[in-house]
């Protein structure tokens, strides 16, 4: 019996790294083509949404040269979702900086990764995972037939794995914390920050929501896990 080979790719995207592992039984040309479509999609999204790129749509909106309502459909879609999340999380999730300028970075990465993963499904690939900066959308299983096994890193030492989760087929996992890029999540006043909480992971069917719930759940502090668990099929995992 032929064993499916693993095709692995990685590249810089969205200020972090994007990794794709394909465990399907497919030739390397097919895998390479799928990877190119994914990475070019991510670069495209970065051009539109990055606050570090001066002519991105978000930068233009923030500088006043573009009205939000005149922006592209993907920008409208993202801010629709962000607005819903702000309400659903009672303000713990925010797509605006304290000065009022738009910064949807907490949402775009997970959303873009899930959108990019649709390109893989459309390429008829069944068994793979796509990881962008530690947020992971999976499909199917490993070549061995096992579920994708994902290690959750220790918040205080990224080279330590604190536990592993076998991700149910086609599910996603995202983790929020303060460890890797400094304190970039702030808590809404109504929710006391959990001083002992180091990182907050969410697994569920869709990466865009797993990522958003992880961000909001972490910001919610002590109330975060209960809040996430209200959503059907989304599970919270805290590391203290």
């Amino acid at each position: 019996m032929t064993i499916a080979t693993s095709h692995k790719f990685a590249a810089k995207a969205m200020g972090t790294a994007a990794s794709l592992h394909i465990d399907d039984f497919c030739d390397s040309v097919t895998a390479e083509k799928a990877w190119r479509s994914v990475i070019s999609f991510l670069w495209n999204i970065e051009q539109t949404f990055s606050t570090f790129i001066s002519d991105s749509e978000i930068s233009k909106i923030n500088s006043g040269s573009l009205n939000l309502l005149d922006s592209s459909p993907s920008v409208i879609e993202v801010f629709d979702a962000c607005t819903w999340l702000e309400h659903a999380s009672d303000g713990a999730f925010r797509a605006r900086r304290p000065d009022g300028s738009l910064d949807p970075a907490g949402f775009v990465k997970g959303w873009a990764t899930q959108c990019a993963s649709r390109l893989l499904t459309e390429s008829n690939l069944k068994n793979w995972y796509l990881c962008v900066g530690g947020d992971i959308q999976t499909s199917g299983r490993q070549a061995s037939g096992e579920l994708w096994s994902v290690g959750i890193t220790d918040p205080q030492d990224q080279n330590l794995v604190r536990c592993t989760i076998d991700i149910p087929e086609n599910w996603a996992v995202a983790t929020s914390g303060n460890s890797a890029r400094g304190q970039h999540i702030w808590s809404a006043d109504a929710n006391p920050a959990d001083e002992t909480l180091r990182s907050f992971s969410v697994i569920g069917p869709d990466l865009m929501w797993a990522d958003a719930f992880a961000t909001a759940g972490f910001a919610k502090g002590t109330a975060g896990a209960d809040w996430v668990n209200k959503f059907s099929n989304y599970l919270a995992l805290e590391i203290k």
Binding site: C131, G151, I152, Q158, A180, S201
Partner: peptide, 15 residues
């Protein structure tokens, strides 16, 4: 067994 790692977002430099 571990095939991927989830954690707080790392920078490209840290990758």
């Amino acid at each position: 067994k571990i095939r991927a790692v989830s954690g707080a977002t790392y920078s490209w430099q840290a990758y």
